[in-house]
């Protein structure tokens, strides 16, 4: 599904190299986790994949189902099936949550040559999905993420994911700022979307989230590279011993 080869990335504005040859292969239906210390390049990887400005790819490739992601605009990547759940979802005053989601959904459908969703069908769909994430009607009507608590923002990300039904979901520290209950809710939302045709890349600092969203593969990222790959037990090792041992081992 997602294939990253020897990806090198630097900041556009300064001579700072962040990713120094990332290789990653997430097959269809798989859940991969990336863990790593602060500054290892995890969030940069998610931004580069989703097409945020400010980064320059100096070498390497990233494809989604064989299509070159790096030449696409962010909206084209979204229509191709890529979704990034933001670490810090953006507040957009004046744009209603529902208007936003309907515009996004129909824009993607249009880009893929599919029929747009009618207002009635959309309403039915969003109510159903919102309910399971305990998002009430008031939250749907409010401007995007404005006045939402940390937990509400993350739930809103998962709602968007559920509505847009992407093939490849990247979760960037979705557990940050969540209490235990919110974490369970968000994880349930993600698990409900697990499907043979859908892959996940879960970026996190803590093993805790991986108790709820069980990964098939865990990668350790450090200094702009993936330095170790293993099963779920790798996450437990990090939780118990920190990164120091692993980093020493691969150094």
């Amino acid at each position: 599904m997602l294939n990253i080869k020897d990806l090198h990335v630097k900041l556009e504005e300064e001579d700072k190299v962040i990713l120094k040859g990332v290789d990653l292969d997430v097959p269809a239906g798989a859940v991969h986790a990336i863990m790593g210390p602060n500054g290892s390049g995890k969030s940069t990887l998610s931004y580069v994949l989703s097409g945020r400005d400010g980064y320059e790819v100096t070498a390497g490739a990233a494809t989604l189902d064989g299509a070159d992601l790096l030449v696409l605009d962010p909206e084209e990547r979204a229509s191709a099936g890529l979704f990034l759940a933001f670490q810090y979802p953006v507040e957009i005053p004046g744009v209603g949550n529902m208007t936003f989601l309907r515009t996004a959904l129909n824009a993607q459908k249009k880009a893929r040559g599919e029929d747009e969703v009618s207002a009635g069908d959309f309403l039915k769909l969003i109510r159903e999905k919102a309910k399971s994430l305990k998002i009430d009607a008031d939250m749907l009507k409010r401007p995007v993420n404005v006045g939402f608590s940390g937990g509400e923002k993350k739930r809103n990300e998962i709602l968007q994911m559920a509505m847009l039904e992407p093939k490849m979901c990247i979760l960037d520290e979705t557990d940050s700022g969540l209490d235990v209950d919110a974490m369970r809710l968000v994880s349930e939302g993600v698990n409900a979307l697990r499907d043979a045709g859908r892959s996940f890349l879960v970026i996190t600092h803590y093993q805790r989230l991986l108790d709820h969203i069980k990964p098939d593969v865990v990668h350790i990222m450090a200094n702009g590279r993936i330095v170790k790959t293993g099963g779920p037990e790798l996450a437990l090792e990090v939780e118990n011993n920190g990164y120091a041992d692993i980093l020493e081992e691969v150094a």
Binding site: S50, G51, R52, D53, D73, P74, E75, R77, A78, S79, F83, L84, F86, P89, V90, E91, I92, P93, G94, V95, T99, F100, L101, T103, A104, L105, A107, Q108, A111, P143, V144, Q160, L164
Partner: peptide
């Protein structure tokens, strides 16, 4: 707001449509 623009685009809204949404939000 470039952050808001990217957020909208990352959900599949085209750059021009995203800008229009933000303009209308500003005028709201």
């Amino acid at each position: 707001d470039e952050e808001a623009l990217f957020y909208l685009r990352s959900r599949g809204v085209s750059a021009s449509e995203a800008q229009d949404l933000l303009v209308l939000a500003f005028l709201a």
